[in-house]
Design a protein around this nucleic acid. Sequence first.
DNA 1: TTGTAGGCGTTATCAT
DNA 2: ATGATAACGCCTACAA
Lengths: 342, 342
Amino acid sequence: MARKPGKTTIHDIAFELRLNASTVSRALANNPVVSQKTRNLVLAKAKELHYRPNHIAAALRRGRSDILGVIVPAIDRAFFASVIRGIEEKAGEQGYHIMVCQSYDSSLRERTMVETLRRVQVDGILISVAKDGKTDTAFYRKLIDGGLPVQFFDNIPEGIEAPAVVIDDEKGAFDATTHLINSGYRRIAHLCGPQHLHIYRDRYLGYTRALKEAGLPVEDELIVEIDSHFDTSPEIFNSLWKRPNPPDAIFSASDYSAAVGLKAALKLGLRIPEDLAFMGFSNEPFTEIITPQLSSVDQQTLEMGRRSAERLMAVLNNNSTPAKTEPKLVLLPKVIVRESSS
Amino acid sequence: MARKPGKTTIHDIAFELRLNASTVSRALANNPVVSQKTRNLVLAKAKELHYRPNHIAAALRRGRSDILGVIVPAIDRAFFASVIRGIEEKAGEQGYHIMVCQSYDSSLRERTMVETLRRVQVDGILISVAKDGKTDTAFYRKLIDGGLPVQFFDNIPEGIEAPAVVIDDEKGAFDATTHLINSGYRRIAHLCGPQHLHIYRDRYLGYTRALKEAGLPVEDELIVEIDSHFDTSPEIFNSLWKRPNPPDAIFSASDYSAAVGLKAALKLGLRIPEDLAFMGFSNEPFTEIITPQLSSVDQQTLEMGRRSAERLMAVLNNNSTPAKTEPKLVLLPKVIVRESSS
DNA sequence: TTGTAGGCGTTATCAT
DNA sequence: ATGATAACGCCTACAA
C-alpha cells in the first residue's frame, strides 16, 4: 500500500525489516560493519519505499549543513554570475550546496546577509564585498576569529589577513598597457575607477608602471576618473579627444566605459585602431560581439569561483584553518587582443 | 565569562534566567502569551550571549526549511542571472533563502538536482527546464502530484498542468515583426531557433501571423533555422543576402545570431537600417552597447523571477495548491526599438 | 503566564 | 553485526 511518498524515514525501513534504525542508518552510510546481506535488504527496501534522506535532520545531528553561503553585490552582473557558476560547479562535485545572496553593494546589507546565512548554519561563506567603501573590517575580523570559515574573492576587505582569491589587477593593467605600447601607441589615456577600491587603484598603478618602464611620461591630463559604469557619458571621451594633444589609445578600467568611448570615436569618424586604440578591462561578454571587437583583460572569473570554492571546502574538510601566512591566491589575468587594438 | 560564541542555545538563555527553554522560545517568537517583563529579559540575555537561532533545528521541527530550490541551465547566462536576481529579491523579502543549481541543459542532471534539492528539504522548486528536448513530463507530473510545490518559468514542460510564468513569445515575435512592417520593410527574414522548443515555435508563429495579417507572403526561403547561438556563422547571413531577391529586414529569435548578421552586414558595407534592418530577441545586455544598437524584444526577466517567486511562496504560505485551471501567468514582452530598425 | 514532555530524522556512543 | 539510547536545537500540545 502506498504510504505518503517522500515521508519515509529510516524507522519505516527498520520497522519493515525488523531491524533497528541505527542499523539502517549504518547500512545507508555504507558503514562496513553491517553485513552485506543486511545492507542489500536495506537498500532494496529503501528503494521500494522511495526513501529520501532528510539532509536537514542529518545536518542538525552532525553539526554541519554542507551548505556554502555566497554573497555578491548582484547576481546578474556578468562577472559575478560567472564566478558563482564556478563556485556551484565545484561545490556540487563535493556534495555541497550553495545559498546565494545579494548585497546590492551595501555593506550594511552585506552584514545582515552574513548573519542570515549563519542562522541557516552554512558551513562557510564566500564573499565579494560591497563596493560602497563602508566595509567594516572589524566585523570580518571578528567573524573569522570566531571560527567561521570565510573565503573572500574579487573585492576583498583591506587590512585583514584572510583567505582570498583575487586577480593581479596591477599586472593585468600593466600587461594591457604594455601591449598598447608595444603596438606603437604613445599617448595612452586611462579611464580609471573609484580609487578607494584597491582593484581600481591597482589598475591605475599597473598603467603608470607600464608607462614608466617604457620611458613614457605619466600625464595627469590623460587620466580621468569615472564614478561608475553607467554614468559614463560620451562627453568624457570627447573632452579627452579635443585636447590639443589627444591620446592615441585608451585603456579603460571598465569595458563599459571603453565601449562608450568606442562608440563616440566611431561617431567622430575615427578609425579604430589606426587613429585610436581601445583596451578595456573585465572581458565582458559583449566585448567580442561589438564592432570592432574590444580588446580587454580577462579576469578568470570561472577559475576564481572554482578556486574559491575549493579552498573553502579544503578548510572545511581538513577542519584546518588555512595558513595565516599566505592565504591569498592571486590569479593571473590575461590580455585578450581584439580588433580595437592590434 | 566567554562561552564559545555562536553556540548559544535557548537552553543557555533559559538556564541563566532560571526559565524554561519553552518560555525562551516563545519570547523569541514574539508569542503574546509571555509577559512583557520576561520577554525583555530574554531579549536582553539573548543579545548578551550572542544568541543566534539555529534555523536548521527549527526547520526540522517545523517541517519547513524556508529554502527555495532554483534550477536553471546555467547561472551565467544573462537571462537566468536576471531571473535569479528577481527570485532572490522577492524570496529574501519574505524570509526565504534560495539554493541555486545548474542543469547545464541536461534533463538527466536536472532530475538529479531535483532529487538533491528534495533531500535538502526545500519547500518548493523553481525550474526553467533543460533545453535538450529530453524533458520527462511524467517525472514532473509525479513530482507535482506528490505534493511538492513546483513553479516553472521560461522554458516549461509541455503537456502538463503546472504553475508557470512565461512570456508571450508569439506576441513578442508578432509585435517585433509588425514593427518592422510598419517601418516599411517588406521582405522580412526570420532566423529561428530549434522548433522542438515551444518558445522558438511560438516566435516563429508570431512572425508568420504578423506577415499574414499584413497581407505579406510567408516565404520559406527567408526562414533559416539556427541550432544554437554559438554556431551562428556569418555564412548563414551571407547566403540569405546573396539571394536574387534578398530580405530588407531580419528578425532573429536570438540576439546573438542577430549580432552576427549585423556584423556581417556591416562588413558588406550595408547601411543599417536603411538597406537592412535588424531585430533580435531577448534584449541581451549587449544590444544597447553594440553599434548600431540592436532592436530587440525584452523578456521581462526580473519580473519573471519576481512573479515566479511570489507565486511559489503564495502556495507555500496558504498551503493551497494553485487553481489547476489557470496556473499559467503570461508576461507581456516589450519591443525595444533601437538604431538597427527605425 | 510558565513548565513539562515529546518528537522532528538522523547519527554516534555504548552496550550486547 | 546489531540494538538501545541519547542528543543535535527547536517548537508545541498539554498540564499546572
